[in-house]
Design a protein around this nucleic acid. Sequence first.
DNA 1: CAAACATACATAAACTTCTTATGTATATAA
DNA 2: TTATATACATAAGAAGTTTATGTATGTTTG
Lengths: 118, 118
Amino acid sequence: MYVCYMAKNELKLLNGTLQTIVLKLLSTKEHMYGYEITQTVKTLTEDDIQITEGALYPALHKLEAEGLLETTVKVVDGRARKYYRLTEKGKLEAPEKLSDALSFVDRLHQILTLKPSF
Amino acid sequence: MYVCYMAKNELKLLNGTLQTIVLKLLSTKEHMYGYEITQTVKTLTEDDIQITEGALYPALHKLEAEGLLETTVKVVDGRARKYYRLTEKGKLEAPEKLSDALSFVDRLHQILTLKPSF
DNA sequence: CAAACATACATAAACTTCTTATGTATATAA
DNA sequence: TTATATACATAAGAAGTTTATGTATGTTTG
């Protein structure tokens, strides 16, 4: 199962979920860098959701361009990390987006668990 | 909230969920026609999810082209309805697709409800 | 009775987001 | 020294939407 990157179980849900995941993580953890986001989601979901870099970086850049995220570059162990965090605007807008996303996910769950005779 | 069709709450989840919804409904209800699917989802989700025709019909045609759905046209009250139902192939493949989709939705729910200190 | 609305299908241009591939670069493990 | 992990980035193509538009019939409302 993948937000990105198909494999044996060809499954194609999602498109637009990535932004939501990023906003959620940065609403909960203050600041994270790209690679850290991919590894965190991979670990949290037991490899079910693997975010590809080709999807993540453009998504991060877009959120930054929209003024929801801002960055700080920090060199650690000789490698540059680009840390992202919510801007004030991001802190204002994230809660509603996340609430909408959760409602949507719950609705989807509702439909997928419908019993005969709906 | 919309699989399609934005409104006040600009929310863009989904892309590929539509197929899943269709397969689920037709796994549960034997046969349905396009318009009926849009109205059923709208009613079930209390207007949260509104499937647009521009998204639905291409999705139905694709599932039919893939051999998962088959159709029967029936005229009711002077209007032609195109009823869709699962083919044998569809009945074989739908369960796994739906199971994968539900896993994904649950993972997404998990992430969206993460508490600080993950 | 005419207009508006609901039912019922369909297509197409534009858009967004993802997949896949590729590229650069450094650090560490085999 | 080769492979793997870390860490960023971009681009072509594919896929699935949004939005607009079109056809056509039936029903409700003023």
